[in-house]
Nucleic acid binder design. Structure first.
Length: 202
DNA sequence: CCCTGATTCGC
DNA sequence: GCGAATCAGG
């Protein structure tokens, strides 16, 4: 595979959108994440500064020695770094999600987290969940890995637990079922046959 | 162990 | 220019 204009386009778009190199590599196909990263650097759209700059952006080598004017005015053949104040792709500040059990808030997990085609975490009311599944879920949640949003991968359960408005919030994080966004227990409450829902519903 | 981006360097 | 290998880190 080669970097056709179209593929580069996809790369740029996804990178700007905050997708990881490996995700982009999967999407494109025929390339590894290394290839993607390499290309990203060559394209000069590397430093994908996204969130809080942290503290120090100025580094020793460039910032320390006050150069004389003539020295400064004469950049080498390869001294052009695009100052480019890039617009930061909006970050999902915090998922305005709530526990599926205790609340009915929507969950804006963006596509960067949930693979295409996956349904968003449902918000079943308590009376739509079988007592068995409910008990099972609560048991599992005690053993949840308590991952943060950033720690989620395609293989971790993305079921939100707790109140996102507080520190008392995390994601299940247990191994997700292959092809599913949740672990076994959470899949149990997330995916229910229509018939079962109808029977249980009032 | 899963993952992330960054860098190097032979091709 | 390309990207595998490697590095450094969460």
């Amino acid at each position: 595979m080669s970097w056709t204009d179209e593929r580069v386009e996809t790369l740029k778009k996804m990178w700007a959108d905050g997708q990881s190199a490996s995700q982009i590599a999967k999407e494109l196909g025929g390339v590894t994440r290394n290839a993607v990263i390499g290309k990203v650097h060559r394209l000069g759209l590397s430093n994908r500064v996204g969130g809080i700059p942290g503290k120090d952006d100025i580094e020793e080598e460039v910032a320390l020695p006050p150069l004389r004017p003539e020295v400064v005015a004469k950049p080498g053949p390869e001294a052009t770094r695009a100052p480019e104040p890039r617009p930061v792709p909006e970050r999902p500040a915090a998922p305005a999600a709530a526990s599926p059990i205790t609340s009915v808030a929507p969950i804006p997990l963006r596509k960067a987290i949930i693979p295409a085609g996956q349904p968003l975490p449902p918000q079943p009311s308590a009376n739509e969940i079988s007592p068995e599944a409910l008990a099972s879920v609560r048991e599992v949640e005690k053993r949840a890995r308590r991952l943060t949003l950033m720690e989620l991968t395609e293989r971790t359960c993305k079921w939100p637990i707790g109140d996102p408005a507080t520190e008392d919030f995390w994601f299940c994080g247990l191994p997700s079922l292959p092809g599913k966004p949740y672990c076994e227990a959470h899949v149990g409450v997330a995916f229910q046959p229509m018939s079962a829902r109808r029977d249980r519903r009032r």
